[in-house]
C-alpha cells in the first residue's frame, strides 16, 4: 500500500471513529450545556410571586448589589468555607500521618477513621442535630459531667458557624486524609534516608521534607473541598435551615429558599450563577497555586 493510500485509510478510520463517538459526545455536551444555558436565561427573567414571567435584563444582578441577604450570605459562605477548609486540611494531614505510621491492624484503623465520609450528609446532619440538642443531646450531657457549662451549639448565632464547620470537618477530614495518605505513600524514600543520615529530627523532617513535598497533594485536596464547601447546603438545611435568624444562611441556602420557597426562580438563578462564578474563581486560584508548588 502506498503512503498516500495508507494516510487516506487512516483519515477514513479517524472519521469513522469520530462519527461513531459523535452521538455520545453531543449528548454529554448537551447534558452539561443545557442546564447552564437555561439557568443563564432564567437569570434574565423576572418571576412574580404568582409565577408570571417577563424579561428582566440585568435587574436580577443589579438587585444583588443592594440585597443585604446576598452580602450576608456571601459572608457566611466565606466564613464557613475558610474555617472548615483550615480545620480539614490541618487535621486531614495529621490524620494521614497517623494512618501512614499505623503499624497495628492498619486496614481496620483506616476503615474506622475514614468511615464518616461514607455517611450521607443528611444522616450526619440528623445525627449531630440530636447529639447537639441543648436539652436532650449527649454533647451538653458530657460537658456538664465534666463540670463545664452547657452550650447552645446550633441555636446560638455566634456559635452556629463554628459548630457547622466542626460537623462538616468531622465528616470530611477523613476524605482529605485519604488524599494526603496517597501523597505520603508516593513520596520517594531516598530523601528520608538522606535526612536520616544527616541526623534530621522527626519534626525537621516533616517541616523541611514531608510538608513541602506534600503541598501539591494538599492543594489538590483543597480544590476538591473548596467546590463542596462553597456550595454548602445539606448539613445546614437539616440542622438549622439557615438560622438562628439568618446566622447560617449561606448563599446556597438563600438561593434555594428564594427559588423553591418564594418561587422567584429568576433571582435564584442569578444568585446561583454568582455562586458558581465564586466557585470557579476559587478553583482557578488554587490551580495556579498548585502550579507554583509543583515539584
Amino acid at each position: 500500500m502506498s503512503d498516500a493510500a495508507a494516510t487516506l485509510a487512516q483519515d477514513r478510520q479517524k472519521l469513522e471513529m469520530s462519527a461513531l463517538s459523535a452521538p455520545a459526545v453531543i449528548f454529554t455536551v448537551a447534558m452539561i450545556a443545557f442546564p447552564v444555558v437555561y439557568t443563564v436565561w432564567l437569570g434574565f427573567q423576572n418571576f412574580s410571586s404568582t409565577g408570571k414571567q417577563s424579561f428582566a435584563g440585568l435587574a436580577n444582578y443589579s438587585r444583588l448589589i443592594s440585597d443585604y441577604e446576598f452580602w450576608h450570605g456571601l459572608w457566611v459562605t466565606i466564613a464557613l468555607y475558610v474555617l472548615s477548609l483550615v480545620l480539614q486540611l490541618v487535621f486531614g494531614v495529621w490524620l494521614a500521618l497517623v494512618l501512614f505510621h499505623a503499624k497495628r491492624l492498619p486496614g481496620i484503623v483506616r476503615s474506622l477513621f475514614i468511615s464518616p465520609f461514607m455517611m450521607p450528609p443528611v444522616v450526619a446532619g440528623m445525627m449531630w442535630l440530636v447529639i447537639l440538642d441543648p436539652s436532650l443531646g449527649a454533647a451538653n450531657y458530657m460537658l456538664q459531667s465534666f463540670g463545664l457549662p452547657p452550650s447552645d451549639w446550633l441555636a446560638s448565632p455566634s456559635l452556629v458557624i463554628p459548630t457547622v464547620a466542626l460537623i462538616d470537618s468531622w465528616q470530611w477530614t477523613p476524605y482529605v486524609a485519604l488524599i494526603v495518605l496517597g501523597g505520603l505513600q508516593s513520596l520517594p524514600p531516598s530523601v528520608y534516608e538522606a535526612a536520616q543520615i544527616d541526623g534530621a529530627s522527626p519534626f525537621k523532617t516533616f517541616q523541611r521534607i514531608t510538608l513541602p513535598l506534600l503541598l501539591p497533594t494538599i492543594v489538590t485536596a483543597a480544590i476538591l473541598r473548596s467546590v463542596d464547601l462553597l456550595r454548602f447546603f445539606d448539613i445546614i438545611y437539616i440542622t438549622t435551615q439557615g438560622g438562628p435568624g439568618n446566622a447560617s444562611n449561606t448563599l446556597n441556602i438563600y438561593g434555594f429558599r428564594v427559588g423553591f420557597e418564594f418561587f422567584n426562580i429568576g433571582y435564584a438563578s442569578a444568585l446561583m450563577l454568582t455562586l458558581t462564578a465564586i466557585v470557579f474563581g476559587a478553583v482557578l486560584a488554587f490551580n495556579r497555586l498548585r502550579g507554583a508548588v509543583a515539584w
Binding site: P134, L136, T239, T240
Partner: peptide, 16 residues
Amino acid sequence: GPPGVVNYSFQQISAL
C-alpha cells in the same frame, strides 16, 4: 422555653 428553642419545630417539641 428549652435552650436552643430557636431551632424547635414540631419534631423537637413532640420529642421533648
